[in-house]
């Protein structure tokens, strides 16, 4: 299982966006380095441009995607992936998520139950085009691995 190190600052941004956007899905990009360890140092929310069913769908505009690539380039960062939330659903990729998933990117999904974060999991396509879960490591507490998984399973 590949590993994704998530800094506390980036985690806070993602969780705050997921909870404040509830009951709609939030979305955004995250950046960092991808040398021997994939490390997320920064997350930036973007607008969910889906006009309908935003409680179960998200879409990011092409312009926002181009800005994300430009931001990474200008700041010496790597665009590592996309996050979004699943209000009142598990942090597991749907068929809809899979259909438009890209190789290389990590996909962080936040499960939000009653406006509170229940799980933060990350997924990445394998060589067969299927999602595999990544181990999410809290950088400030390396022993705190997949910290929300147990609560999600209860």
């Amino acid at each position: 299982m590949s590993k994704l190190i998530l800094t506390e600052d980036a985690r806070k941004v993602i969780i705050k966006d997921a909870e404040s956007t509830y009951p709609h899905e939030c979305c955004g990009f995250f950046y960092g380095s991808d040398d021997d360890k994939r490390t997320v140092t920064e997350a930036i929310p973007v607008v969910n441009t889906k006009e309908e069913n935003r409680e179960r769908r998200f879409e990011i505009s092409a312009i926002d995607y181009m800005k994300a690539e430009q931001y990474a380039d200008e700041n010496g960062l790597t665009l590592l992936g996309v996050y979004h939330s699943h209000p009142e659903h598990a942090a597991i990729p749907s068929e809809h998520d899979l259909r438009q998933a890209l190789p290389y990117f990590s996909y962080i999904i936040v499960s939000v139950k009653k406006a509170k974060t229940a799980a933060v999991l990350s997924w990445k396509l394998n060589d067969q085009g299927r999602f595999e879960q990544e181990t999410v490591i809290n950088q400030n507490n390396p022993f705190d691995v997949d910290v929300f998984l147990s609560s999600f399973n209860q």
């Binding site: 899905e25 979305c27 889906k50 069913n53 179960r56 769908r57 998200f58 879409e59 990011i60 092409a62 995607y65 181009m66 690539e69 996309v82 979004h84 699943h86 209000p87 009142e88 659903h89 990729p93 749907s94 809809h96 998520d97 259909r99 438009q100 998933a101 890209l102």
Partner: peptide, 12 residues
Amino acid sequence: ISIVPAIAGGCI
């Protein structure tokens, strides 16, 4: 010229 992948998804 930018090649832009569509980014979308959702919980269901």
